[in-house]
């Protein structure tokens, strides 16, 4: 039986449909909840979020993978209500965006405890919500090199992925040699790992996307839409054409079966201003038209947005 954990319960892989594989309902660095400048009422949160998810659903979007880790404002109860009211499947993450977003309780924890925590969230549930995590988030802290804590989290994630069969999604694919060393040491097949953000403006030059694919890893071009052409682009933005060319070049090298794509947008950011006008629907409104214009056929588009994520997200036994 093929299945994927969503916040409302397991669903068959066949029901995933088009997947936005790296998105956020709302992301905030831990501690941002103390700063009232970012607060919004629940009315405002729903008002900012529901139309984007409904639009995603109407465009034909099936599944929204929320890559917000523990301590970053992840809110499974809220996701459940959003999913139930909009019809979008929402997959929640266990794990951390990076060591620098893990609060002291987890920063001090052993690999064994972290693995046990991730496994609990995948097999029993997140807190008392009953929602089981469908993916494990890990990442590289600011600074470009994996810290000791980052490495402990990667190792714990590898063990949890092996135990539960859910895959791993990374924030940043820099310093991939260290990541792959850990995954290999733990015996985790690299096709259970999506190395994300290979396309981001700060790190793209330093990210060995081809090498990762050659090792067997999946490769995420998942910051589509963070463009220098925006009126107020974030520091990780990149010229639109440069990113698209990078993506097409990578596919052209024979890696279509390895790629996933997403927009990494916030429906309603929790601890930062967000980027006005950038939503998950960039996938439908800009990215897929750009891919068609560049000559990709419907089969290739289906591979990127439906088949590859289905293979990736399906719980392995």
């Amino acid at each position: 039986m093929s299945r994927v954990n969503t916040v409302l319960g397991p669903i068959p892989t066949e029901e995933l449909g088009l997947v936005a594989v790296h998105e956020h309902i709302g992301y905030g660095m831990p501690g941002s909840e103390l700063d009232t400048r970012w607060w919004r009422s629940p009315e405002q949160r729903y008002e900012e979020t529901v139309p984007k998810l409904r639009q995603f659903h109407e465009y034909g979007g099936g599944t929204f993978v929320d890559a917000t880790g523990i301590c970053n404002g992840r809110d499974a109860d809220y996701y459940k209500s959003l999913s139930a009211k909009t019809g979008v499947h929402i997959v929640a993450s266990t794990g951390f965006v990076g060591g620098d977003t893990a609060l002291p309780f987890f920063a001090r924890a052993s690999v064994e405890y972290l693995a046990e925590h991730f496994i609990h969230e995948i097999t029993v549930g997140i807190g008392n919500t009953g929602s089981r995590a469908g993916i494990i988030k890990v990442g590289v802290s600011r600074g470009g090199r994996m810290t000791d804590l980052d490495k402990r989290i990667y190792r714990a994630a590898a063990r949890a992925a092996l135990t539960t069969g859910v895959p791993i999604l990374t924030h940043l694919a820099i310093d991939a040699e260290n990541a792959i060393t850990i995954f290999n040491a733990e015996g985790l097949p690299l096709d259970r790992v999506l190395f994300g953000h290979v396309d981001d403006g700060v790190n793209a030059d330093k990210t060995r996307d081809t090498w990762i694919a050659e090792q067997g890893g999946r490769v995420g071009f998942d910051t589509f839409g963070y463009e220098t052409e925006l009126p107020d682009p974030p520091f990780w933005a990149r010229p639109r054409k440069e990113r698209l060319d990078h993506f097409l070049r990578f596919i052209g090298q024979g890696h279509l079966g390895k790629v996933l794509a997403s927009a990494d947008a916030n429906c309603s950011p929790l601890g930062w201003p967000g980027v006005e006008g950038h939503t998950v629907n960039y996938i439908f409104e800009d990215l897929i038209p750009d891919l068609r214009a560049a000559g990709l056929d419907e089969a290739a588009i289906k591979t990127i947005f439906v088949e590859n994520p289905a293979d990736f997200l399906t719980i392995q036994h």
Binding site: G28, S32, L34, C71, L103, P104, A107, V202, G271
Partner: peptide
Amino acid sequence: EEMLGGYFLTPQTNPP
């Protein structure tokens, strides 16, 4: 410092 959240230590600015 160790007890602070990342919001105060590595904010979403470049550099953090």
